[in-house]
Nucleic acid binder design. Structure first.
Lengths: 220, 220
DNA sequence: GTCTATAAGAAGATAGAC
DNA sequence: GTCTATCTTCTTATAGAC
């Protein structure tokens, strides 16, 4: 990796651990293996390093969203798959999302940095919201919506069902960001959560009154 | 309010908006209406102000927990109440908790400050977790557990049911902390969430297979 | 591109008058 | 307890040699 990129990488690590103001240009330089003044040959000043990190983050987030959208479109095309999704697959879906968010090195450091810096700049708060709240809700809402259409899940309100699926995952994620030693416990809770979610929303063999209503409506 | 307390108050406001490192002693002094050097007659240094805030926070949190514990004990004594709790009361319970967390001036500023500073100090992360994750889960777990015992709600796993109740509230809270203009939307979502929660967990008139099992177990 | 030396300025903290 | 003046330290950033 070239020096210019290594500066971003080390700066991101430090910013995500201590916050922008508590990281000195000399700290970044030291980790890169150069002296502070050398760093100014690569970036105009400290703020420019931060800005470059945010730019890279936005680029990566966009790429990711694009990738999700594509598999999203595939999902629509292959809606058949979702008619027969099993509880185990639903658990895998949740766990994969969770572990990706938790362990992907970039996404983890970006998230921590955004968490620390969010109140300094409205744009950073917005970026956090989009990446960890609105986009996941929208993407998973689409998946769960497909399952509902396919009759695997049943609900009168896909939005709330999606909230019930994702909010516990989000909460467990913020727990692990703060106390990584609780990860194992969190994964177990996550699995229990999804099993329960599946039980609550899966189509009953014996439909209750509400379910009957819904089934009648669906057959129109 | 005396100067010593006003310093804490103004410092908390600033720390919660900009973070410790971005607030200068002169900023705090200015808001109090004195000059920076005068401030050193009240506190040894900047860190001492921060420490005093954390101390006050811990004191208030303990008081609160004590108060909750007392009403908790009352709740156990008056478990009868929870046998006949209505959906509207459940919504009120959730909304009240949410609006208290969101609007109580101290709790809001403490939470924002903890959010910003949590990665600087493990103790702050722990304080956040206790106040906004573990304690609410434990307190609400007790309430919902009572309702389950009373037969108003039914579940095989009170812990996960509590997660399903609280995680959406927690998520909506973090949304409103970052984007206060979404509060109205969040309150509507919250109400829909609790209605759905109630539908999912309320005892059916016609129990499903699982419910029959549970009812048999309960009559032992 | 990297270094040493150093300027420039910001922020925390103290001294001492009132 | 509050002020003005000032010290000290730390940090960013630049100058200029190699």
């Amino acid at each position: 990796m070239d020096t210019k990129q290594r500066i971003l990488d080390e700066a991101l690590t430090l910013f995500s651990e201590k916050g922008y103001a508590n990281v000195f240009v000399a700290d970044i330089a030291k980790r890169v293996g150069i002296k502070a003044p050398s760093l100014y040959k690569h970036y105009k000043n400290k703020q420019a390093i931060f800005d470059a990190i945010i730019e890279e983050m936005n680029r990566r987030f966009l790429e990711e969203a694009g990738a999700l959208q594509i598999s999203g479109d595939d999902a629509v095309a292959d809606a058949e798959i979702y008619k027969h999704i099993s509880e185990e697959q639903l658990i895998t879906l949740g766990k994969d999302l969770f572990l990706y968010f938790l362990h992907d090195d970039y996404t983890r450091r970006f998230r921590k940095m955004l968490t620390i810096e969010q109140f300094h700049d409205k744009k950073l708060a917005a970026a956090y919201m989009k990446q960890y709240v609105d986009d996941p809700l929208s993407y998973q809402g689409m998946l769960l919506g497909l399952m509902a259409s396919a009759g695997v899940l049943q609900t009168e309100n896909v939005e709330i069902m999606t909230l019930h699926f994702y909010a516990p995952i989000y909460m467990l994620l913020t727990i692990c960001d703060r106390e990584p030693e609780r990860e194992e416990e969190a994964l177990k809770t996550m699995e229990a959560h999804i099993r329960q979610f599946n039980k609550l929303y899966a189509r009953d063999e014996k439909p209750s009154q509400d379910n009957k209503k819904r089934l009648r409506r669906n057959t129109k």
